[in-house]
Write a protein that binds this DNA or RNA. Structure first.
Lengths: 343, 343
DNA sequence: AAGGTTTGTTAAAACGTTTGCACAGCTCAA
DNA sequence: TTGAGCTGTGCAAACGTTTTAACAAACCTT
């Protein structure tokens, strides 16, 4: 293990000088710098990250806190794309990513405080906000640099957020169906305690209200972000006497399940029922039929989150604490059918 | 920031004693331990990870090196599932995961040596081996604790590996088709420089040879691990006068593309052509038709890799340097059709 | 030519732990 | 009673950096 002292000795300078060469201090003469650099290359010097962190009190590392039921998340392309956005930026900015997950409900705070209070990371990225999220509240109290991908209520002023306008996105999806003449529109939602479910439900509600359409609560089904959820929802939903002619589905993976459920029950999409979904994962357009989905800018969501967090850490001025990534409905076959009006 | 000295002072003991309480040193009396623990809880003490790492020369962190074209990888459910396996074990074993990716071809070694020589991590997990992988060779030379998910040639004795028997897996897939009476079987492969492509190609070759079937090299198409690859392969493959009646596809995501391509060209699966694929991602059974796929134990692959690496780091005896995770062909509709014999 | 500023470098303290060694007090066998 | 062994604790060095303060030498400015 070659240390800064070894380099200093070999170059005939002090360790401080070597340190300053590494960190490009302006007061170092070109000759000294060149000599030291040459010797570092010759001897294969690599600064010890821990020693540096200890004294500089910065780790150049960000943590991603994965939400508890990580199974769901990982099943989703959505997560991979998000991670890719985060990683692309953080690598460019010179930050490493630490991936962490709690083992249980209660040790969530414990896990994050080990990292935060143990000065293991410089900032935290949170995924998937719950309606009353203790983790968010904790980080807000600690005033530790954090960014949430999702939404939090206004009482957490220290937390940056990057999010979609999910109310509007769901409104747009519903409006698309309404404009095609649908009057009975259902909603296959995700877990009720996630803000994303809440917001999309709200947009759905508003669109229906605006169009003067009835919202039959029996047309609203809550589930997980899993295929099974969508699959199971169908057997229930399609048995209803006055069943919907169109469905809004919270996520593409769930929509795959919905599609499969409908196929097995003998229904045809979009002829019997139309479907619009969210997240626009790569496979959506390869489904049979291709699924209409809302592109929420997943990569951008991750990239922006990392970007804002790094800015916050580096003390740059924050123009806006909350950033909205635009969405766009991609219409495909699954919603291309005009329903037959009832007598 | 409350340090070990603060606790020592408050408890009326020396810092060494506090340190020993934290690390459960047997020579500490129960009374002292209890008192120190109480005070730590009261004052909210959290050990500084960097200081600890500096002196103990261990970081309790593993790195995952992502292969260069990370886009492909992230598009794949496969990666998420693998990550879940790794993370589940590493969390249990008390290790954090550092996710890193190189920005270019050349700085791969640089990126990993910063982590390795900078003593930032205790071990490295490598994904997706190339045929002559400089990264693997580097880690082998450094004799740094590493595990490869995939295969390497025998000249890297210091690298642990976890892998499937991909030759056998492809053999089994081909055999399945052959036993159904197929005589013209094609192969949609991945990038040629990945060992996984190489091995599956080999199994495919062996099975055909064993059955006395001709391998038409025009039936073999190389591409990426992307849907487009599968999609594009079809327009080419199906125009051939003596086109195959069955296809083996390197990955489910590619198979989705294949399926879509065939649908657009007006072919029906499995009636016109049968398909068998690999990796068995969750959406495979939701495709139309459900795709026959080889379950390669993705989660297990990741879990085992982490397990072996941690054992190596902790100096436990290694029984076998190379572990094979069993595979299993899941037959679904996409390969359930007996071809009509010619003449 | 004197004083002030700039430039290039060093010495030493600090960061918060762990751990080898020393040692005091105790127990117990001979 | 002696001393060997054990138990519980403290001292101080070490880990490899960064950074403040100090200072010598060189450069201006008048």
């Amino acid at each position: 293990m070659v240390t800064i002292k070894d380099i200093a000795k070999a170059a005939g300078v002090s360790p401080s000088t070597v340190s300053r060469v590494v960190s490009k201090h302006p007061r170092i003469s070109k000759e000294t710098a060149d000599k030291v650099k040459r010797i570092m290359a010759e001897m294969g010097y690599h600064p010890n990250a821990m020693a540096k962190s200890l004294v500089s009190k910065t780790t150049n590392t960000l943590a991603i806190m994965l939400p508890r039921p990580a199974e769901e998340l990982f099943q989703d392309f959505f997560f991979g794309e998000l991670l890719r956005g985060i990683l692309t930026h953080s690598t460019r900015a010179g930050y490493d990513m630490l991936l962490t997950t709690a083992t249980g409900e209660h040790d969530e705070i414990e896990t994050v405080s080990r990292l935060v209070l143990g000065r293991r990371v410089d900032g935290v990225i949170l995924l998937s906000a719950r309606v009353k999220d203790p983790l968010i509240q904790y980080l807000n109290e600690q005033q530790f640099p954090s960014v949430l991908i999702g939404r939090t209520d206004d009482s957490n002023p220290h937390i940056l957020t990057v999010n979609n306008n999910n109310v509007q996105a769901a409104y747009d999806a519903a409006q698309h169906l309404i404009s095609q003449g649908h009057e009975r529109i259902g909603f296959v939602s995700g877990p009720r305690n996630l803000t994303v479910s809440f917001d999309r439900m709200e947009g759905y509600r508003q669109a229906l209200a605006n169009a003067g359409l009835k919202l039959n609560t029996e047309w609203v089904v809550e589930g997980e972000f899993l295929q099974e959820s969508g699959f199971r929802a169908m057997s229930f939903l399609m048995e209803m006497p006055d069943r919907p002619t169109a469905l809004i589905v919270i996520d593409d993976v769930v929509a795959f399940g919905v599609l499969r459920g409908l196929t097995e029950l003998g229904y045809s999409v979009p002829d019997d029922i139309c479907i619009v979904s969210f997240n626009n994962i790569a496979l959506s357009e390869l489904a049979t039929p291709p699924i209409s989905s809302t592109d929420i800018g997943t990569y951008q969501l991750g990239y922006t989150a990392s970007q804002k967090l790094v800015r916050l850490i580096q003390g740059e001025p924050i123009h806006q604490f909350s950033t909205i990534i635009p969405h766009r409905l991609i219409v495909r076959e699954s919603s291309m059918h005009v329903p037959v009006k009832k007598g």
